[in-house]
């Protein structure tokens, strides 16, 4: 059997790459994609733990499904808002969405 560490490193890397993307990207779309990477890391984590443990493994798998569903809902909404902002300002760059600054 593949050691559990391999999967944990994979999910940790995905999460870290996603977090780096969130902090470094300036386009709202790319930030959303980075969030998706973070969530993919989380889902892999849940599935790994669920399959390497013998007790109550189901709840981990169910959790992964909920993560995927909720992420889809969130991205759908986010794209709607980005689209509206884009129509008003012709940009999806979060640096230029800065009318709310002190």
């Amino acid at each position: 059997m593949i050691p559990i560490e391999n999967f944990l490193v994979l999910s940790g890397l995905l999460f870290a790459i996603g977090l780096f993307g969130v902090l470094s990207r300036r386009s709202a779309i790319l930030i959303l994609m980075s969030v998706e990477l973070m969530l993919a890391g989380v889902a892999i984590n849940f599935i790994t733990f669920a399959s390497y443990r013998d007790t109550e493994a189901f709840s981990g798998l169910v959790f992964a499904l909920f993560v995927i569903t909720v992420a889809a809902a969130e991205v759908g909404l986010a794209l709607g808002i980005v689209l509206r902002l884009f129509r008003e300002r012709r940009t999806a760059n979060v640096d230029e969405a800065s009318s709310l600054k002190w």
Partner: peptide, 12 residues
């Protein structure tokens, strides 16, 4: 948009 992006990252 700002609320959503922060919220999505916090949720992850």
């Amino acid at each position: 948009l700002k609320y959503l992006l922060t919220g999505a990252v916090a949720a992850a």
